[in-house]
Amino acid sequence: MRELDYVRASDVEEAVALVSGDPDARYLGGGTNLVDHLKLGIARPARLVDVGRLGLDGVEEQDGPDGRVLHVGANVRNSDLAAHPVVRSAFPVLSRALLSGASGQLRHQASTGGNLLQRTRCVYFQDVTTPCNKREPGSGCSAVGGYGRQDAVLGASEHCVATHPSDMAVAMAALDAVVVVRGRQGERRVPVRELHRLPGDRPDLDTTLEHGDLVTGVELPFTDAARCSTYLKVRDRASYAFALVSVAAALELDGDVVRDVRIAWGGVAHKPWRATAAEEALTGRAVDEDAVRAAVDAELAAARTTDQTAYKLPMLRGATTRTLLRLAGKDPS
């Protein structure tokens, strides 16, 4: 590990000034991803600015510009957010997603902001002995033509096929969460769906943030659909594994007919994938197996698979159908 300077920031302004003025500086939150990458030689900052004790650890109902929101501080730990009574009742998809991620120990350590900003990655990104365009731009992609069972099936490029591993971010994409960011120009709000980016020809960039931008919180809009929401994660082990595919869904019905539906997928792309084509196909229709499968197929028209990832498409059809039928109160057949 490279020599490393450590500074504990005393407030948000100081933290932003320290990192934005120094290309070799990085924020340190819970450290579960960054410390691992320091050890592996993937991240090589010269200075860490610890933002773990800046406060930013409250969960509060607030009036936002577009209605009532639950404001979650960036330092709220994943375990505390999952167990928060308002999250459990008004945003169950978020509790479920958080609880399906990592382990009990890691959830105590990982922060809300850090979970969002963990690296999009594949096994080759983690292995510094192999070429990787994300780790070392221009060096090539070892995953294309290599081991690729976890790879993206939507929105990938010839330069990168890695998937974003967060469960929490998938739930937040379905909830239309808004990320509160403090940068050199002051505070701004970024819809979580615009926080992460597709790889294109710059897979080294996971997000649309500028260097020095600090996530200070996340706002979750209260909606009827959010109240009727859940998360289904499909993985190789029953616990403590990344998703092969996952489904975050929220549903508001008007009688039998869909008034509002949000569907986001994990494990399929470089970012949490909001399935807007599927949502449009379902809105105004009754939720039944044929309708959901047709909606999923509308979304998957753009999918590109290999022999190793082809299994993800039927898995998404099954998982999404099961999730929506359950939310609609119909037992999946």
Binding site: R8, G31, D50, S79, L106, H108
Partner: peptide, 21 residues
């Protein structure tokens, strides 16, 4: 998980934690 301790009262890994923090 073999490095687990109770840190400020909660179970926590010590391998992914920098002591200075």
């Amino acid at each position: 998980g073999s490095c687990t301790v109770l840190l400020d009262g909660r179970r926590h890994l010590t391998c992914l934690a920098l002591a200075v923090a």
